[in-house]
Design a protein around this nucleic acid. Structure first.
Lengths: 228, 228
DNA sequence: TTAGACAAGATAATCGATTTTTTAACCTAC
DNA sequence: GTAGGTTAAAAAATCGATTATCTTGTCTAA
């Protein structure tokens, strides 16, 4: 009912600090490809762009560097990490291993509340208007769906790593303009994943997840190759 | 050098910034159990303790929070994460999965230079004087050995996650005073691991690694239970 | 007694200015 | 022409002080 303000799954609560706000904003922009890979960040320009002072901005940059969305070089500031085919392969491979593991555990552990959340997340994702807001809304619901899928895997650290890998993967997947054609097929798989999860068919679910990641990988690779 | 996470092997080069220096120092102290779990950090006290100003100190704290060695609560500073049996189990379980995977790949990929590095690392570890420097020297060589073991696994992200898990695991393992008795057995396994790696026996190596982590887990659990 | 209000002190977060280091442009000697 | 050196400008890092927020202790009213 009260979907207006503080209920969302956002990292920062009602009393967000400037540092946290700019962290979230920068993270979205980095994952969404609003910066050129390899680019050196001009801190003074960012100060204007995000309307914050130097201290909270630098704190946010430090966090992003520790998180892996920036690289920090002593005495010479921050840059956006380069992209490479090798790294994309690495990330996709790790997603296969870790999300597969997480999904199997989630299917084994998830309760009926999870089933409800999953259906809800899938429904919201299906309903999302891709043309709206440059697809930001769809992206958010997509992230949320995958998060929900593996949520009851029982490992905080596994979830954390998967989240990190998703962010990294999306730096490739979200290069360039949208391609709604392939999305059709991937969207289909989301619903099949829910089906198999509800049937508690861990093996089939994992196989489908493997295929899903593989297809997403092909999208990301295409984007990367077109982009270079 | 620039692509490694802030947790790189070497503390920081000659031109380390104040921020990086205090990050390294704090990281060592957190992993080494020099702070009480759950404790709230008094920033002004840290300023004196590490002889740095507020800005570089806060930047270091932000990095450590993103890395998982601190928790950050908006508007109320930083605290040392609590310890729990559940989390220890989680961390150990993840180490089993990830280091096992990494070791298998390393055994498949590692070249002769790796073999040499491995022998060297094992030798240095054996020679290390535990009584020296509160065991810091041994700890460093131990970390280095395990790092070398999985180094050629081919995945930057896998290595990164393993490193992070080691730091988390050591928060438990290094609680309380040293127990040289059990170390004997674990030290023995280090050499057996080298043996199996050189023989390229991936399966046996992984099984031994599983056992090694399991034994380490028992040490850590004992420490944790004694500590509570 | 105890819940709530309030003020005072402590702590966290942020700002503006300064110091340090790097970068880039220019010069000179060979 | 190029390697090496010098310096001015730019950028990064840090400092000192200010502002915002939380915490604690005290008081009052029910």
């Amino acid at each position: 009912m009260n979907n207006s303000l503080p209920t969302s799954a956002k990292p920062v609560g009602p009393a967000g600090t400037a540092s946290s706000r700019v962290f979230d904003h920068l993270r979205r922009d980095l994952v969404g490809g609003r910066f050129v890979a390899g680019e050196k960040l001009a801190i003074n320009a960012l100060k204007d762009r995000y309307q914050v002072g130097l201290s909270p901005l630098r704190e946010a940059l430090n966090r992003l560097a520790a998180y892996g969305l920036l690289v920090q070089e002593n005495q010479r500031g921050f840059r956006v990490p380069k992209l490479s085919r090798d790294e994309l392969d690495d990330i996709a491979q790790m997603r296969l291993e870790m999300e597969g593991m997480a999904l199997e555990r989630a299917v084994a552990n998830g309760d009926s509340l999870w089933e409800a959340d999953l259906l809800a997340a899938a429904h919201r994702l299906k309903r999302a208007d891709i043309s709206l807001d440059k697809g930001e809304e769809w992206e958010h619901l997509h992230t949320q769906f995958h998060r929900t899928l593996v949520a009851p895997c029982g490992s905080v650290w596994l979830l954390r790593f998967i989240e990190q890998l998703h962010d990294q993967f999306d730096r490739y997947r979200r290069l360039g303009p949208k391609m709604p054609t392939i999305r059709q097929e991937l969207d289909e798989q989301h619903h099949q994943l829910v089906e198999l999860a509800l049937q508690r068919d861990a093996k089939a679910a994992r196989e489908l997840m493997d295929d899903h990641i593989h297809k997403s990988y092909e999208v990301a690779l295409k984007r990367y190759q077109d982009h270079v």
